[in-house]
Design a protein around this nucleic acid. Structure first.
Lengths: 146, 146
DNA sequence: ATACGTGCAAAAACTTTGCAGTGAA
DNA sequence: TTCACTGCAAAGTTTTTGCACGTAT
């Protein structure tokens, strides 16, 4: 009970806590299925529906954030400090934007257009990760579309 | 047959052309369903499957771009000039990033981190649109999460 | 004539939900 | 005890696909 992430709701259960812990421990911004596959072996009586229900709860409580859908699966982040994300168009990897780039983004990009309030803390940047840059023939400059 | 967007593939059909034309005409970055609902009245013998198949084809040909999933539906853009997008977290509206902000983004944001090539032309910025700023109690500064 | 395009309906993939039993406080 | 949590399976949504027929070249 010591190192469990604080949640506003006092309601706990073994499985709920395990799901949040797994989400916070991981840095790969997993989907419901990925968390399920991680926990299922150690918690045999665990169902995917429970993962979905709890992820939804965490999102409501702001204990987790949805990063959008990548390759058909919604991805989540248990780190709730303000930060943006990088998504690899090659392999679908979801990464955190390094703090120094987050700062650059916040500082240099206008926070407001005439008609749109931009929340720079939720920006999603697309591109190609290290691995995909090495392996694939990735357009290194200019126009990249998927 | 005059003002139809050029595609590399020479294959045309009345419906295919109509779908691409509708996609390019609209500025709201529609989903398959939205295009279907627009065209169905004037093209009674049109099926949703055909919309999906053609959107997939356009994406392959790079005649259209997927902007990701908003509220459960994949959104598309027929404008293939390099540009980023704004998505309203309030109403799901998808808008183009104004050219001057695109330029700012390109200029000021590093194009490359050590391990990730950022394609600034595909950035998705989240925030709140004019209408939602007016109507809802939107957090005006700081941490916004959904 | 041949290859491609389409409607239709079935299936697939992901997520949500109702119900009845289990667990937490 | 009481209310919340969960498994299970059914249902809901969006998207994909197989097949037979229709259309473009």
């Amino acid at each position: 009970m010591s190192r469990i992430k604080e949640r506003k709701s006092k309601k706990h259960s073994f499985k709920r806590d395990a799901i949040l812990a797994a989400l916070c421990r991981r840095e790969d911004h997993p989907s419901a299925r990925q968390i399920y596959e991680e926990l299922k072996p150690s918690i045999p009586g665990l169902s995917l529906g429970t993962i979905y229900r709890n992820l939804g709860l965490f999102r409501e409580e702001k204990a987790a954030v949805s990063l959008g859908v990548v390759n058909g699966e919604e991805r989540f982040d248990g780190r709730t400090e303000r930060h943006s994300h990088l998504i690899c168009e090659g392999c679908g990897r979801v990464m955190d934007l390094p703090p120094e780039l987050q700062e650059e983004l916040d500082t240099k990009l206008s926070l407001k257009t005439n008609s749109f309030f931009i929340d720079t803390g939720k920006t999603v940047l697309y591109g190609y990760c290290e691995n995909c840059l090495k392996n694939d023939s990735v357009p290194i400059s200019g126009h990249v579309q998927t």
